[in-house]
Amino acid sequence: MSQVVAEGVFVEGAGGPRMIAGRRKADGEIRFPMPSGADAALYDAIEVTGEGRLWSYTMQRFRPKTPPYIGDDDEKSFKPFALGYVEFPGQVIIEGRILVDDIADLKIGQPMRVAIEKFPTSSRGELSTYAFEPAT
């Protein structure tokens, strides 16, 4: 059983995983992740719903520096990964890793859904984190 990357980032329900964001009580502005600490009282936690659309993307082709990166790999075994922003209409645009091997097929505006990725780390064991994948 892997550990979640952090509590309160996403939930896994019958309809699949959903992101948890914070909606500011004062003006309805939505931000992800839900703020923690003293600011948390200013926000209501909400589930981000519906299908997303790819807003932008790239491929990380070199191993990020440690710290802060804790992937269980080194310069040689590192495998490039895709990441990007997904727009959830009427709510918020969220950044996350994308579960594709090749970004040549990605297209801005295409439908995306939330998925769970197993992320092996060097210091926290295998983490379960959110990611995005093409919905089609």
């Binding site: 992740p33 802060p68 990166y69």
Partner: peptide
């Protein structure tokens, strides 16, 4: 949050590329 950097999303190079 710490996980943002831990999972490899805290690089200025990515931001420039996505923008």
């Amino acid at each position: 949050p710490r996980w943002y950097g831990e999972t490899g999303m805290m690089l200025t190079t990515q931001f420039f590329a996505m923008k």
